[in-house]
Write a protein that binds this DNA or RNA. Structure first.
Lengths: 188, 188
DNA sequence: CGACATATTGAGATCCATCAACCAATGTGG
DNA sequence: CCACATTGGTTGATGGATCTCAATATGTCG
């Protein structure tokens, strides 16, 4: 998993300054307050959000309940993938869990930049592949493990989540009720 | 979801013949017999398999049990993603469920072809994005629905799976025991 | 027919959800 | 600074979903 981040880092380091500054030109720094929404259901996700500081969460509203799909921390890129890449209404929300500073890049501007700076297509591919590895791993955990095991893995592999995020959201991220998560914690 | 397939189809139709024939040059037709493995755990996934005829399944071995992650039918592309894109040992197996004909493309040859035919990078990105949509959807189903609901969705959205594949594998694909799936079926 | 793979059914145990009550920490208006 | 509401978390009781083990049935193919 981390190997992918290394690939991306190394790619960025080898990237020519023209491409890099083209990328900066189409990115804007913005701040969001705790609780604020960067994206709501049924809106089109026009930006990808590169987090400089803060924490975001992404979630579905399903049957009246919030289903947390992902948390984002500093240096993560937050985006509602399907909505962003097809520029169609989103099924997901993205919300700030703390005051947050992001550098956000407009979809159309990025598409255009890719024409003149084809290296950006490769960069796009690298991020996309990284997201696949993340998704495959998360899917495997749902497929193979029960809630206790998933929580233990969360503590081990992503302690920053357990340390910084309310149990309610962690429970919904793990796909169990808050009460069950509470009982899991009391047993370990 | 299907919108992605349309994008890919349309992209392929607009692709110049040079790029297309470059792609064909690095692909080889091969046949596999029912039960045969196209990839085993701990091997490097050197090829992506474009299925011309037949059915494949991909699975993990976890705790002695097979966990089916995906089925592949005609025109699908089968690959163990993490192993293929990093050329590292695979955690998954790919096995033929029927006699199968594939057109398989070597990883290294494809990487080289991308240098001379940059359109292939875009094609790569399109397939990758499509796989993400598939993964996100499958993850959502695990996250949000119980086994009965997931089975009903399978019948509705991928009837060819239910019609062509032994229950044992379907159960492991849905993440339930064979017995539970059998009971689900008897109740609907 | 016999043998092996595939599927169904039953009984008991375990995991987890739901509903409800309760508790602790924090914040707010007066 | 107090009274009270709000948020976040715990605990208990009960029921439903699903697992496991075991027995039985059905199907398929040599």
């Amino acid at each position: 998993m981390n190997e992918y981040l290394l690939r991306i880092k190394s790619f960025l380091e080898r990237l020519d300054t023209d491409t890099l500054s083209a990328l900066e030109d189409i990115s804007k720094t913005k701040t969001y307050k705790k609780g604020e929404f960067l994206l709501r259901q049924d809106e089109v996700c026009r930006f990808n959000f590169n987090i400089e500081e803060g924490i975001l969460r992404k979630f579905y509203l399903n049957d009246g309940k919030e289903l947390t799909t992902e948390f984002f921390f500093t240096n993560d890129i937050a985006v509602s993938f399907g909505s962003y890449s097809l520029q169609k209404p989103s099924k997901e929300f993205i919300q700030a869990l703390t005051d947050t500073v992001v550098s956000q890049t407009d979809f159309t501007a990025f598409q255009n930049a890719k024409i003149n700076y084809p290296k950006l297509i490769e960069l796009n591919l690298l991020f996309t592949e990284y997201y696949i590895m993340w998704l495959e791993n998360r899917l495997f955990e749902f497929h193979a493990f029960d809630a206790t095991h998933r929580y233990l893995l969360l503590i081990k592999d992503q302690p920053h989540i357990v340390q910084n995020i309310p149990l309610t959201y962690i429970a919904s991220y793990l796909g169990v009720s808050l009460e069950t998560l509470s009982r899991i914690r009391s047993k370990i």
